[in-house]
Computed example of a mutant assay.
Amino acid sequence: MTVAKRYVLRLFVSLKYVTANVVDRQCGRIVTTASTAERPLRDGLERGRACNAKAAAAVGEVLAMRLKVDGLTQEPIYPNAEKEVAKKGFENQTKVWAILNALRSHGVNLRIDDDGDHRPHF
C-alpha cells in the first residue's frame, strides 16, 4: 500500500521554540526532526532568540542536513504552507516561510500545495 503524500512536514511554533518534523504517513512516525529546543541549535542562536525568523531558518537548515543524512532529500515532502500559516497566525508567517525557504535552498524536494505566493516581502 502506498500512501499519497507519504512524507509531510509539520511545524510547531510556540513563544519559546520552533520545531519542524517530517512524518512518514505510511508508518505513522517522525522520521526526522529539528528544534530550537535542542541544546546545540539553541546555543548557536542569540540569547533569548529561539523563536524568531533567523532561528526558524536555522531549524530548516538542520532539518535539511538530517534529511540528507537519512537519504530523504529527493523524496517529495509535502508542507501545507497555507494551513501552517493559518494555524500559526499571521505574525508567524515569516517563521513558517523561513523554514520552507531554508529547506528548499538546501536541496529538499518540497511540494507546496497552495498556488498563492504568501511569502512575506522584505
Rank of each mutant, 00 (worst) to 15 (best):
E75I: 02
D24K: 10
P76T: 01
A86Y: 05
L72H: 07
E84H: 01
H118L: 15
T32R: 01
G89Q: 09
D70E: 14
W97H: 14
A55I: 07
I112P: 05
K5V: 00
R49I: 03
V108N: 12
V108A: 07
R119W: 06
T2V: 14
D115I: 13
L63R: 07
R104K: 04
G44R: 15
C51S: 15
R47C: 05
W97N: 02
R6H: 07
A58C: 05
P120S: 04
L110H: 10
R42Y: 06
T36L: 02
W97I: 03
A37H: 10
R66M: 10
E38T: 13
N21D: 15
A34M: 09
I112N: 03
R47P: 02
G28R: 13
F90D: 03
N101H: 09
I30P: 00
L100F: 14
R29Q: 02
R119C: 01
V31M: 07
E46H: 03
L15K: 11
I77C: 00
D113W: 06
L67P: 07
L72C: 10
Q74G: 11
R47D: 04
W97G: 01
L100Q: 10
N80G: 09
N80E: 14
V13E: 12
A86K: 09
V23A: 09
Y78N: 06
P76K: 09
A81R: 01
K83W: 11
K88R: 13
V62M: 06
D113L: 15
R39E: 15
V62A: 03
V3P: 06
V23R: 10
Y7N: 06
I30E: 12
I99Q: 02
P76C: 11
C27H: 12
D115C: 08
K54Q: 02
P79L: 08
G60E: 05
R119P: 00
V69Y: 04
V69F: 03
E82C: 05
E61R: 15
E46Y: 04
A64C: 12
S35R: 02
R47W: 10
R66V: 08
L15I: 02
R111H: 13
G89L: 12
E46S: 09
D43F: 08
I30D: 09
S105E: 15
G60P: 01
G44A: 15
D43G: 11
A58F: 00
V85Q: 00
D113Q: 13
L103P: 10
R42E: 13
A34H: 10
A64W: 06
G48T: 06
E91A: 14
L11W: 09
Y17T: 07
K88L: 02
K5D: 14
R42F: 05
D24L: 08
N80V: 08
K5P: 03
D114T: 13
P79A: 14
R10Y: 02
